[in-house]
Write a protein that binds this DNA or RNA. Structure first.
Lengths: 250, 250
DNA sequence: TATGGTATGATGGTATACCAAGATATTGGG
DNA sequence: CCCAATATCTTGGTATACCATCATACCATA
C-alpha cells in the first residue's frame, strides 16, 4: 500500500464533510482544506524519500492513491513546483526535483548566512524561558542520536533551529530555510544516517547552544558555520560517491 | 478595460493552438503553456500595483477577464500563494498579500545578506566581459533615473543585480531575492518614485559598481548594505506615513 | 531492416455540476 | 421602528467528463 494511503487526516476530513454539523464540539475548527492535507502529505513523502528524485508524478494515479480529484492534485503540484520540490518537464509533466552539487552548495551557503544571523540575533536578544526551551530541544536531539532513526534526528534538528529562528523573529528566513531544506532533504538523509558522524553533529549543535546561551553572537555565528561546513562536506562525499556509482552503472 | 485583457501573448497562444502546424518555422517552439502566461501576467499585475494589497482575487471574474478556465486561474493562484504574493483567507478566498513593516524589515535584512554576498563573490571572481556588461547596466539605470518612470527604474535595477547574481553563480539566491522583491514591490514603487531621492539611489549603485570592479569584496558588501539601508529607511518613512493616514481615515 | 502508421497513455486545457459556507437582503414579529 | 430569523446570492471547494496534443511503443509492410 502506498505511503500516501495511510488512513489519517484525509479520511477524518472526508467523514467530517459528510457528517457535517452533527456534533457541536467543532470549536477551534482549523479550516484545514483538502489541499492543505494533500500538500503536506506529498511534501513529506518527497522529503522523506518515498519518491525518488526524478520520479514522475503522474496525476491520475496520484488521484487514485490519495482519493482526491485532479483539481486538488494539480493545485498541489503547482504549489510544490513553486517550492522547488517538483519540476515540470514540458509536455511530460511533473517529476520530483533533481539536485546537483552546484545547487546544494548554494543552498548550504544561504543556510549558513540565514542560520548564522538568526543564531547571532538570538544570542543578543533572547529572553524569557528561551534558554530552557533550547536546552530541552538540544537534549531531545541528543536522545534521538542514539536510536539512529534519521527521521527523528531530522525532526529534532528542525525543532532546534525553529526555536532559534522564532526567538530571533526571523520568520521569513525560517520559511526560506525550511524550503531549502526540503530541496536538500536527500542529502540530509544521507548525512544524518551516516554511521561515522553522529558525534560531530551533536558537538556542533552543543557549541551553537552554548554560544547562544552565553550571549556570544560571534561565536554563535561561527558555530553555525562550522556545523554547516561539516554537513556540506559530508554531503559532498556522499553525493560524489553516488555520482561515480551512477556513472559506473551506465 | 482590465490590465489583464491586453491582447498579446495569450491570444497568440490561442490562435497558435488552432492554426496548429500550418507553417514550418516552428523551430524553437518554447512550450509556453497557458498557465505560464497567466502566471506571468498576474504576477506583474500584482507587482506593478494594478491590484491593491488586500484586494480580493475572485476566481470567476478573473476567468472572464483572462478568458481562461477556472482550473488555470486556480493553479496560478496556488503558485502565487507559494510565492508569497497571494494569501488565502479561509472561506473567503485569495487576496493580494498584505505587508507589514516587520516583514519588510526581515526582507530587507535577507536581501542585505544575499545581495552582499553575491557582490562580494563577484568582486573576487568576475571575469570576461562582466565589467563591461555591468557598466552598461549601470549606464542604463542612470538613463532611466531621469525620466522618473518608476517602472523603468525598477527594471533597470533588477537587471543590474541580475548580472551580479549571475556572475557570482548564486542562481538560487537570485530566485529568492526576486521573490522577496515581489513581496515588497509596493515599497519599492514608493521608494523609487520618491522625488526627493533619485540621486542617493544612483550614487549607491555607482559605489557598488566601483567596488566590484576594483575587486574590493568588503567594499562591495558595504556598498550593498548602504544601499539597502537607504532603501529601507525611505520605505519605512512611507509605510509609517501610510499607516498614520489609514489610522486617521478610520 | 527500415520506414511509416497506429494505438496507447499522459498531459494541458475546458466545461459543468454539485455542495458548503459567508454575506447580504428581506421579511416577519415584537 | 427595531431586531431577528430566514431566504437568496455569491463564492470557494470538489468532482467528473471531455477534447486536443504530445510522446512513445508497437506493429505491419515494403
Amino acid at each position: 500500500m502506498s505511503i500516501l494511503l495511510e488512513a489519517t487526516a484525509l479520511d477524518d476530513y472526508k467523514s467530517q464533510m459528510n457528517i457535517a454539523k452533527s456534533n457541536l464540539p467543532k470549536i477551534e475548527h482549523a479550516p484545514q482544506t483538502l489541499r492543505d492535507i494533500v500538500q503536506e502529505r506529498m511534501r513529506t513523502a518527497i522529503i522523506e524519500g518515498h519518491f525518488a528524485p526524478g520520479e514522475r508524478l503522474i496525476e491520475r494515479p496520484l488521484c487514485d492513491q490519495l482519493g482526491v480529484s485532479r483539481t486538488v492534485v494539480r493545485e498541489t503540484i503547482r504549489f510544490l513546483e513553486a517550492e522547488g520540490l517538483v519540476e515540470i518537464i514540458p509536455n511530460r509533466g511533473p517529476i520530483v526535483a533533481l539536485l546537483d552539487w552546484d545547487q546544494a552548495v548554494q543552498i548550504y551557503e544561504i543556510r549558513e548566512q540565514l542560520e548564522g544571523s538568526a543564531a547571532a540575533v538570538c544570542a543578543q536578544r533572547y529572553s524569557g524561558d528561551f534558554a530552557k526551551r533550547l536546552g530541552e530541544a538540544l537534549a531531545a536531539l541528543n536522545a534521538t542520536m542514539d536510536d539512529s532513526e534519521w527521521i527523528g534526528v531530522m525532526r529534532a534538528t528542525t525543532r532546534f533551529y525553529e526555536i532559534i529562528f522564532t526567538e530571533s523573529g526571523h520568520s521569513i528566513a525560517w520559511d526560506i530555510v525550511q524550503r531549502l531544506n526540503g530541496r536538500i532533504s536527500r542529502l540530509r538523509v544521507l548525512t544524518l544516517s551516516a554511521k561515522d558522524r553522529p558525534k560531530p553533529g551533536m558537538s556542533h549543535m552543543t557549541a551553537i547552544f552554548e554560544a547562544i546561551i552565553s550571549r556570544d553572537a560571534d561565536a554563535a555565528r561561527a558555530a553555525v558555520e562550522a556545523h554547516i561546513l561539516d554537513a556540506s562536506t559530508t554531503a559532498q562525499r556522499f553525493l560524489q560517491d553516488e555520482t561515480k556509482k551512477a556513472a559506473g552503472d551506465v
